[in-house]
Simulated scan of single mutants.
Amino acid sequence: MSTVSDGTVAGPRRLRAILAILATAVATCGVVVAATATPSSAATCNGYVGLTFDDGPTGSTSALLSVLRNNGARATMFNVGQNVQNNRSAAQAQVAAGMWVGNHSWNHAHMTSMSQAQMQSDLSQTSSAIQSATGSRPQLFRPPYGETNGTLQSVASSLGMRQVIWDVDSQDWNGASVSQIVSNASRLQSGQVILMHDGIQNTRDAIPQIMANLTSRNLCPGMISPSTGRAVAPDGTTPPTGGTPPPAGSCTATATTTNVWGDRYNTSVTVSGATTWTVVVAITAPQTVATTWNGTASSDGSGTLTMRSNGSGNTFGFTTMFNGNSSARAQIRSCTSG
């Protein structure tokens, strides 16, 4: 500054030159800030989807958070309690990066084989570990393997948590390639939730393309509502105009294939928008339904399964025998409340 305050004629000229340089620098900085604005803040959000990552925190959590931040994405991390206890700093980093944290059991056991007391202990211990590490108690629960029943859902509810399954399976756990993960994620619609996992390189590599696809469809990553289990805006509001609201008397049923064996597969169906409901499911012949749970079942004998609520919660399931057709999966036809 001494060179512009020496009282010479050159002083004002130098001052003007320096001010011009500063103005240019400010303008340049403005360009940089605009260029690094996150896609979610720049995009027009006509709907929201729930990006979820199970089984963390892991040794790769930091890398995952970096990719998510660089692509303007927020996600829900369904953490395993044992992992949180062993890696508290990674759980804290998730929250610091703007992620939401949910409960994914203590050690990823098959919880439907547990007693109610065991379920209660497992989920309570996990929630306490998460709260101790992050300062917040989880409001969402994802059962390991997507396996659930009315008792488990009731236990989760008693601990203040909403059960969340998924609408789209990225198949990253099954060795899916980057392109396959991106393709699976492209099926996401407003309000839906996708299953992904912490610790998988292909998943991290797929995130930029997943975000580009969502942005092209005016969809943005959002939070999962503890009330409905559906994706909403990060501030908890419902999507602005994500489509025509369902007619009165309707509800939404989401089917997920949770287990597949050589001769049969299990389907879990979660109903939202109603506490009493009737769901009609189409079964492709020659497949047949062998067993059902958490609902009152009836069949018309032509491949249509009707399930009605029976007080066991809003998630029901059934086992379907392949009978020679191993490619088809059960499809939801309708969901009616009341």
Score class of each variant (00 low, 15 high):
77 M>T: 02
182 V>A: 01
309 S>A: 10
241 T>G: 04
301 G>T: 10
66 S>G: 09
3 T>A: 02
312 S>C: 09
334 S>D: 09
166 W>K: 12
147 E>D: 13
316 F>Q: 03
81 G>E: 02
83 N>E: 05
193 V>P: 06
249 G>Q: 14
30 G>Q: 05
23 A>E: 10
207 I>K: 00
209 Q>V: 08
148 T>C: 00
136 S>Y: 13
215 T>C: 00
111 M>R: 00
259 N>R: 12
30 G>F: 06
131 Q>D: 08
246 P>Q: 05
158 S>K: 14
265 Y>F: 12
196 M>S: 10
97 A>N: 04
321 M>G: 04
15 L>G: 07
238 T>F: 11
256 T>W: 09
37 A>C: 03
273 G>H: 09
97 A>D: 11
193 V>I: 15
217 R>H: 15
156 A>S: 12
113 S>K: 07
313 G>C: 12
171 Q>L: 12
335 C>T: 12
155 V>T: 07
145 Y>G: 00
160 G>E: 07
296 T>M: 03
149 N>T: 04
289 V>R: 00
208 P>T: 04
234 P>D: 04
279 V>W: 00
100 W>H: 15
335 C>G: 05
281 V>K: 00
210 I>S: 00
264 R>S: 10
160 G>A: 06
85 Q>T: 13
200 I>W: 00
24 T>W: 10
11 G>L: 05
303 G>I: 14
300 D>H: 06
188 L>F: 01
251 C>Q: 07
73 A>S: 04
268 S>F: 03
327 S>L: 15
173 W>A: 07
182 V>D: 02
248 A>F: 08
33 V>E: 07
99 M>C: 04
140 L>F: 01
188 L>G: 02
9 V>P: 12
274 A>F: 07
330 A>W: 03
253 A>F: 13
336 T>I: 15
162 R>M: 05
85 Q>D: 09
173 W>Y: 11
14 R>S: 02
286 P>S: 03
45 C>S: 04
195 L>T: 08
20 A>W: 04
286 P>F: 06
126 T>Q: 05
311 G>V: 09
